[in-house]
Amino acid sequence: GIWQGRFVNSELPWLRWWDNQGHLLLSGDERAEQESQRAEQERQRAEQESQRAEQERQRADRLAERLRQLDIDPDTM
Rank of each mutant, 00 (worst) to 15 (best):
R38Q: 14
D61T: 00
R57K: 11
D75V: 09
D19G: 04
A53V: 09
P74M: 02
E35H: 12
A60Q: 01
D29Y: 10
D29T: 08
Q4P: 03
I72F: 06
G28A: 11
L12A: 15
W17L: 10
S50W: 00
D29V: 06
R45E: 10
F7C: 08
D19R: 02
D75W: 06
L25S: 00
E33Y: 07
Q41V: 02
Q4F: 05
A32F: 05
T76W: 04
Q34L: 15
Q41E: 12
A46P: 09
E42G: 09
F7T: 09
R6G: 07
A60H: 06
D19K: 03
A46W: 05
S10P: 02
E33A: 01
I2E: 02
G22D: 13
N9P: 03
E40W: 07
A39M: 13
D29E: 01
Q48L: 14
L15E: 15
W14N: 07
E65K: 14
D61V: 02
E65S: 13
L12N: 15
I72M: 10
S50E: 08
E54V: 00
R59L: 10
D19P: 06
Q69T: 09
R6M: 13
W17Q: 12
Q4L: 09
E30P: 06
Q69I: 03
R66M: 08
P13R: 14
L25F: 00
L70M: 04
R6C: 11
E54Q: 14
H23K: 10
E33D: 08
E42V: 01
T76S: 05
N20E: 15
D73V: 01
R68C: 09
L67Y: 11
I72R: 04
Q4G: 03
S27Q: 12
A32S: 11
Q48Y: 10
E33K: 08
L67F: 03
E49V: 09
E42M: 12
R59N: 00
A32P: 03
L63M: 00
R6K: 13
R52T: 05
L67S: 08
Q41R: 11
E30R: 02
E33W: 01
L12I: 13
R62K: 07
N9K: 10
